[in-house]
Design a protein around this nucleic acid. Structure first.
Length: 1060
RNA sequence: GGGCGAUUAGCUCAGUCGGUUAGAGCGCUUCUCUGAUAAGGAAGAGGUCCCUGGUUCGAAUCCAGGAUCGCCCA
């Protein structure tokens, strides 16, 4: 019961945390928390691997503390929670980092630098900040096994990924397609749709309206007409081979000025203005059936036979002109429409006119109308755009130019605007398992729930095939080999590769794997096979982690089976299209099952201006600064309790400081109080182990604690750390500001029951708090109990581990506190200090309330500092009742007649209603000619305050104070004032709370007579062993001060007493 | 243009099943209490619950439309 360590009231939390960390290391607590659960049911957590090639930021702290709290909680609930760390090692982010380091920025430069050397650099850089990540992870108390972390660059990991792809291929779901893909010309690679999703930015692009003169009259089209098209990407015009019209859209020939233009009727006013004159109307179908054509191509040589108007079912009249320029190499719709019109063959790349090189520059075919070459020009260069527009103007083709603001995809890493670009690419046919993914999603509990059928479900319903190949260097090589006859074979293990090729590789990354060849296994084909050049989308790597982290199924298949699916994963919301998706897709493709049961989605951390924090913007808040200033518990507490995590945070250091002040310091100070007085009462407590107070207040404190524990568990089970944490804070506030405040005297006097109660409550709090603030929780546990090596090895306090609950007592205490609040309000109204005792408080209450207040009457009396508490039944003595309808109960009953019912109730005699309620009788009213009998809960009785009393009221009870003072009360008031003054003097003199003193008082006669009358009280309160009133202070009394009480003089002299 | 979410006091956020007079913390003003707490307590100032319409006896809450912000997708 006496804690071994004394406690510093103003403990610096960051340094406390360092000592707790040292203790964990010394006692090997994390490992022990797993060992002790050997054989217990597993609760599965998957770590979504971060990339350690950059510094960790505050947003990483957010996800890592949420990844920590639930595993800690589940461990305390009896589960074994293995926490295998993981690192995402491959991919463009790493390559880009290295490119920057090397000062290069193109694939050509990488290849001249050498793939081997480049990948070696990548391998090094992946862990450039590993040490800082590890330090931060430990410092914030994220328990995860970093020594046994999986790494996506490991040979074993790569082999599992190969297995997965071979398996997907075996199911016929891997194919090479020639499609228009979002493509980063700088990185020279296609991006998956979920990568594209990461990089939308609002930009202003020039949009142009271009005249395309008719090639020949056809149907409604006449020789001098021109088709008007609109594009926001003038750079695609050299790829133009056709124009699409909506078959059911109405088009017109419209005269404006001296020219005749063809465009959608719905767009005439917007594009041509009000002066346009409509000459003729016809449908898009008429145009295409008549074989309308225009003079093409643009910006390149071509047969002068005219380019066709074709059907496009995607054409709308919401913007543009209703005539859409078709460049099959640069748009998915274009590609489909051109295929449908028979203009291109999607399986034969040569039929697709693509004048743009993979590096995003024009090839030699592109030239201006006067023969100047555009070869080598980067297509997204604004200067080029301007030249193209000037060129159009010079040819008389530009009708109009406007700025167009829209959201356009950019490369999520390098920021280059993406282009849509036709190229061969490898796909996984995820659209064929769409229904299975949707079914899997149904089994997942999302937090918040709207993700399930909102953002994520929506995304799944619109699923398109996953483009998984990347024409890059540092990644898991695509394990597809192709022979010169075009057969392909997917390798599913290193053993298979070795068997087929005879070569053994120590490293299966590029470029080593590129050199491996073998004979085509297809029957009758003996051609050599070599690997296709691509690597795999990194998201596929991370999506494969459920099995690849164990090297399953090539090894440890049992481990994988045991630990699939995950009970819990947690990442930021932006992973909806990232890891959340890749995990689900891979698991559905391979196992037809969702890989996780519960997902907590965290919102974004915004900076003070509401901007997203990200490395690329450089506006991250340095986590170390927060940790050094406030500590990890404070950081964690802020994330857990300041708000529900999914809506995002507006991050500020001040908010963290507030949490420290309001919660951590309050908790610490309660703990400090216990330890301080436990030490001061060493003797009284030494033989009183674990006393249980039976006092109402003790039982109340334990009941509140038990109640809170159940709520915390219930909320944590629902992944609602916020409400759980706030409940703990509420409990600590009640313990500190009510239990301890009301029980102080018992602690001064060394009452073992009080110590036992507070100790028990604090120990439960430390266990409830352990998952949230693991440091301070452990410190309190260790000093107050310490039976186990750490609080994190304890069982979560529930059931038999909790003290008895007493709902009636809790309710009674709540009513008593309410009464005290009213009484203090009445005092404030009368402007009488609490120190001045009053003769009587009159409390109006009935029934349960009265019983409750009577039970707690001593507390009420002391808190209000009155001699007596008197009860009255009715309001008669203090005021009158008002009676009102209870809408909640009567509303459903009376419906439309509710206003009448309320009127009838308001007209009742409140005194009679009060009497009826008291006697448990029904209350009769007539509404719209019908009789009704109401019960007590159908009416609400409210006190009506009369004038001239100091009364505070609330609902059915009220408190009034007798304000008249007699000499006796006045003397006691003075005595209390003197005590207060002496206490202040003690503090000023720098005495410790348990120091005994010699005290001498002098001054106004009235004060001295009060001091004499309450001599014992005064001496007792101030711990004065000697008390001299109106005598000479001894010369040894080192501290003297003069003060005034009610404008009367008081001289205080005191000294620490040598006697004990 | 579409989807999802948000909008409540100066700031940060609660608000249960639709129920009477919408709350807390911080900050501010005044008072007060301290033998743990730069803490606590009381009072006060501070609200168009984003707007408009609808459903309902009754709407911060439900519905529709709109505005603004964020994220995502075209």
């Amino acid at each position: 019961m006496i804690p071994p360590r004394e406690v510093d009231a103003h403990q610096d939390l960051p340094s406390l945390e360092q000592s707790v960390l040292a203790r964990w290391r010394e006692r090997d607590v994390f490992a022990e928390s797993l060992r002790m659960r050997e054989g217990a049911p597993e609760w599965i957590f998957y770590e979504g691997p971060p990339t350690a090639n950059g510094r960790p930021g505050s947003h990483h702290v957010l996800s890592r503390v949420f990844k920590d709290i639930y595993p800690r909680y589940k461990t305390m609930r009896g589960y074994r929670v293995e926490r295998k760390g993981g690192w995402d090692c491959h991919g463009l982010p790493v390559e880009i980092g290295v490119e920057q380091e090397l000062g290069i920025s193109s694939k050509a430069e990488i290849e001249s630098y050498g793939i081997e050397a480049f990948n070696a650099k990548c391998r090094e850089s992946v862990f450039a900040f590993l040490e800082e990540w590890n330090l931060l992870t430990e410092r914030i108390g994220f328990w995860v096994d970093l020594d046994d972390a999986y790494r996506t660059l490991d040979e074993s990991y790569i082999e599992s990924v190969w297995w997965a792809l071979a398996e997907i291929d075996r199911k016929g779901l891997l194919y090479e397609g020639n499609k228009v893909v979002p493509y980063c010309p700088r990185c020279g690679t296609a991006l998956s749709s979920h990568e594209v999703a990461l990089g939308y930015q609002d930009v202003v692009d020039p949009s142009v309206y271009v005249r395309l003169p008719a090639h020949a009259p056809a149907g409604p089209v006449q020789a001098q007409d021109a088709f008007l098209i609109w594009t926001t990407t003038p750079w695609t015009l050299p790829g133009n081979i056709a124009v699409a019209a909506g078959p059911d859209i109405e088009y017109v020939r419209a005269r404006i000025g001296d020219e005749t233009l063809i465009l959608a009727a719905a767009r005439v006013e917007r594009v041509l203005g009000e002066d346009a004159e409509i000459l003729e109307r016809f449908s898009g179908g008429e145009l295409t059936e008549a074989g309308a054509s225009y003079r093409g191509p643009l910006f390149r040589e071509g047969p002068d036979g005219g380019s066709m108007i074709i059907v496009g079912d995607f054409v709308t009249t919401e913007d543009g002109t209703g005539l859409v320029h078709i460049a099959p190499a640069f748009g998915e719709d274009d590609f489909r429409a051109a295929t449908a019109a028979g203009l291109i063959d999607p399986t034969d790349p040569h039929t697709i006119i693509n004048p743009v090189e993979p590096d995003g520059t024009y090839d030699k075919r592109v030239r201006s109308h006067d023969g100047r070459s555009y070869e080598g020009r980067f297509v997204k260069d604004p200067a080029l755009t301007q030249e193209l527009i000037d060129d159009l103007t010079a040819q008389g083709l530009l009708f109009k130019r406007e700025d167009y603001e829209h959201s356009y995809p950019h490369c999520w890493r390098c920021g280059t605007p993406l282009i849509y670009y036709a190229k061969p690419s490898w796909y996984i046919a995820t659209s064929r398992v769409r229904e299975a993914m949707l079914a899997g999603n149904e089994t997942v509990h999302w937090h918040p729930p709207h993700i399930k059928h909102g953002r994520f479900g929506d995304w799944l319903s619109n699923n398109v095939d996953w483009a998984i190949s990347r024409e890059r260097y540092w990644g898991t090589p695509l394990p597809v080999w192709r022979c010169t006859s075009g057969h392909t074979h997917t390798i599913g293990s290193f053993a298979e590769l070795q068997e087929r090729s005879g070569s053994e590789l120590a490293d299966h990354h590029r470029p080593y794997v590129d050199e491996v060849q073998f004979t085509c296994p297809h029957e009758g084909c003996e051609q050599p096979m070599s690997r296709v050049p691509e690597v795999i989308d990194v998201w596929f790597d991370s999506g494969a982690m459920p099995f690849a982290q164990h090297h399953a199924p090539l090894e440890h298949e049992d481990r994988f089976q045991q630990r699939f699916p995950a009970d819990f994963i947690c990442e930021a919301l932006d992973q909806t299209r990232g890891w959340f998706y890749s995990l689900l897709a891979v698991s559905t493709l391979l196992f037809d099952q969702a890989p996780y049961r519960n997902v907590v989605c965290l919102g974004l951390i915004l900076d003070a201006e509401g901007q997203k924090m990200s490395k690329s913007k450089g506006n991250t808040v340095e986590p170390w600064q927060v940790l050094d200033t406030y500590g990890a518990d404070a950081f964690r507490w802020y994330f857990f309790t300041s708000k529900q995590p999914w809506d995002g945070y507006r991050f500020s250091q001040e908010a963290i400081g507030e949490g420290v002040r309001l919660f951590l310091k309050q908790l610490w100070s309660t703990y400090f109080f216990y330890v301080l007085y436990a030490h001061a009462n060493r003797d009284a407590l030494s033989d009183a182990e674990h006393a249980q107070g039976e006092d109402d207040l003790d039982r109340w404190a334990r009941s509140r604690t038990a109640n809170t524990a159940e709520l915390v568990a219930e909320r944590l089970d629902a992944y609602d750390a916020t409400t759980a944490g706030r409940a703990i804070a509420g409990l600590v506030d009640e313990l500190s500001n009510w239990y301890v405040r009301r029980s102080r005297r018992r602690f001064w006097e060394g009452d073992p029951a009080a110590f036992g109660t507070l100790r028990e409550c604090l120990l439960i709090v430390s266990k409830l708090l352990a998952p949230f603030c693991p440091f301070v929780a452990d410190e309190i546990y260790d000093n107050l109990d310490g039976a186990l090596a750490s609080v994190h090895l304890c069982e979560f306090p529930l059931g038999e581990r909790l003290p008895e609950q007493d709902a009636a007592l809790e309710e009674a205490m709540a009513i008593a506190r309410e009464t005290v609040r009213l009484g203090l309000g009445a005092r404030a109204q009368a402007k009488i200090k609490v120190r001045q005792p009053l003769a009587e408080a009159v409390v109006v209450a009935d029934g349960r309330e009265r019983a409750a207040i009577e039970r707690m009457v001593e507390i009420v009396r002391e808190e209000l500092n009155v001699r007596r508490v008197r009860f009255v039944h009715a309001a008669d003595e203090l005021g009158e009742y008002e009676v009102k309808a209870n809408y909640r109960t009567l509303g459903p009953l009376f419906g439309k007649e509710m206003p009448l019912a309320a009127q009838a109730i308001a007209a009742l005699d409140p005194a009679k209603v009060a009497a009826a309620v008291r006697n448990g009788e029904g209350i009769g009213i007539a509404v719209a000619g019908r009789e009704h009998t109401l019960s007590a809960e159908d009416v609400i009785l409210t006190m009506k305050a009369p004038d001239g009393y100091s009364v505070e009221r609330e609902g059915v009870h009220a408190v009034a104070l007798e304000l008249a003072l007699d000499d006796d009360l006045r003397r006691e008031g003075h005595a209390r004032e003197i005590v207060h003054a002496v206490q202040n003097a003690r503090k000023t003199a720098g005495l410790a709370v348990e120091d005994r003193i010699a005290l001498s008082l002098d001054g106004d006669e009235r004060l001295l007579s009060a001091a004499s009358a309450h001599r014992d009280y005064l001496a007792g309160e101030t711990l004065a062993l000697e008390l001299t009133i109106a005598g000479q202070p001894q010369a040894t009394m080192g501290y003297r001060e003069q003060t005034r009480i009610d404008d009367l003089e008081l001289m205080i002299a005191l000294a620490r007493s040598e006697r004990d």
